[in-house]
């Protein structure tokens, strides 16, 4: 699973910055059939967690109502230079993660 995480290159302390995340995942609903007519089992990213430094800043529980290759964007208040770390898990138990450094000066 690949993902793209975008944060601004730099921010001033107290700034509100937008964190944008795009994860490559089919988000199979379980309502589809493959070419052989077999039901494709449901497999979606069930949870996404975002940490900034030591604290969790955002968490999302997703279902089959979220589009394939889920996109999430949320605001974070820049405090000090630190890592923004995103982790997720899907219905099959496969975990993924991506991180970026937010420079605050």
């Amino acid at each position: 699973m690949t993902a793209r995480l975008r944060v601004p290159d730099t921010a001033r302390p107290g700034d509100i910055v937008e964190v944008r995340l795009l994860i490559q995942h089919d988000m199979e609903t379980g309502f589809r059939r493959d070419m052989q007519g077999r039901a494709v089992p449901m497999n979606v990213i069930t949870e996404v967690r975002a940490r900034y430094g030591e604290s969790e800043v955002f968490r999302a529980e997703l279902g089959s109502g979220v589009s394939a290759n889920p996109y999430l964007a949320f605001p974070v208040r820049a405090l000090k230079t630190g890592e923004i770390r995103i982790e997720w898990v899907d219905s099959a138990g496969v975990r993924g993660g991506v991180s970026a450094v937010l420079n605050v000066a």
Partner: peptide
Amino acid sequence: AAFHFGPHAPRAEVSTR
């Protein structure tokens, strides 16, 4: 979907598809 915020979030806002 369910989105969880907290006092550390500057705004209760999220974009998705």
